[in-house]
Computed example of a mutant assay.
Amino acid sequence: MRAALLGLILLTAYGAPAARADEPVPSVHVAGIADPEMRSYRSVAAGLDAFDANRALAPDATLRFRMRHADGAPANAGDGLRLRLASDDGAFQENVPIDATGLLTVQRSQAAYDADATFILNRKNGLYTGHPEVRTAVLPDNVRRLGDLRLECRVTIAIVKEQMPFLAKAAINTLMMTSDWCAKKDFNYGVMAAQAGTRAVLRAGERSRTLETHGWNVLAPIGDPAWPDDALVEMGDGGT
């Protein structure tokens, strides 16, 4: 069965009042772009292009994709996932390795692009999703750099836009009053945590802010220019 490599994206924006440093960030869900499916290699290629074009946000980071259960729990070696790229006519076939932590790397492939290949997972649709993950390697697993998340958002949105009808994109551009959704002030990006209900704090020097959590998603204020790219999201072991 074909895999959906991109599950629920928590995107929040516009109209949220400013929060004090010790208050959670208010959020507004943007309707119409939840649960987009990232099946085609061409969609992923748009994300790779966005990663290359915005490297200044995270010059020392790498891009991979993390497989998760539909409820948000990370996949692991025990899930036995196998992924491949294949064209509809079967002329193009290529395995995509998934490591023991559920991470995979998508390589540039002109052959896959020309063949309009799709990702095929050895599981029924809807059981697993995949999410872009941009990380600066020197940071601990429970710490995310805000610039990395800004770049991750651009990768995610590039993939989403590649799949959306023109009128849907135009409507959201109008709602957001910009085509650069990730840069919209008061825009919060849903960061997938290692555990549901994780407590998270954003820090930059002496400043800090407790972040709002929804299930597996920690809402990071990537659209707020007052927080620098080197600000860090520190996630605890659970419990908000």
Rank of each mutant, 00 (worst) to 15 (best):
A220I: 06
L211P: 01
R150S: 08
N76H: 14
V44F: 13
Q93F: 09
R66C: 02
G236D: 10
N95D: 15
L5R: 03
G72D: 02
R145Y: 07
P24A: 11
V218Q: 01
L232G: 01
A111G: 04
F166D: 13
M235K: 06
M235Q: 12
E133C: 03
K124Q: 14
T174D: 07
D230Q: 13
T129L: 01
H131Q: 11
H69Q: 15
F166W: 07
E37P: 01
E162G: 05
T210Y: 06
P228I: 05
G78A: 12
G190W: 01
R144L: 07
R55Q: 14
A115H: 04
I157C: 00
W227C: 11
A196E: 04
A168C: 00
P221S: 09
I157D: 03
E37S: 06
G80P: 09
V44A: 14
R39F: 06
L6C: 10
N217M: 11
R2F: 09
L10Y: 09
T210P: 00
A231R: 03
Y128A: 08
P36D: 04
G236S: 11
E162L: 00
N173I: 04
L63I: 10
M177R: 15
R39K: 14
T213Y: 02
M176I: 13
F166L: 13
A70L: 10
T62Y: 00
R135N: 06
M164L: 15
Y113N: 06
A13R: 01
F166A: 15
T210W: 01
L127R: 14
T240E: 13
T118M: 01
S40F: 09
H69Y: 15
L81R: 09
A171P: 00
Q93I: 09
L219K: 02
K161N: 10
A100P: 00
D237G: 13
A91T: 15
S87F: 03
V201K: 02
A112W: 04
G32W: 07
E152I: 03
G126S: 06
V233I: 15
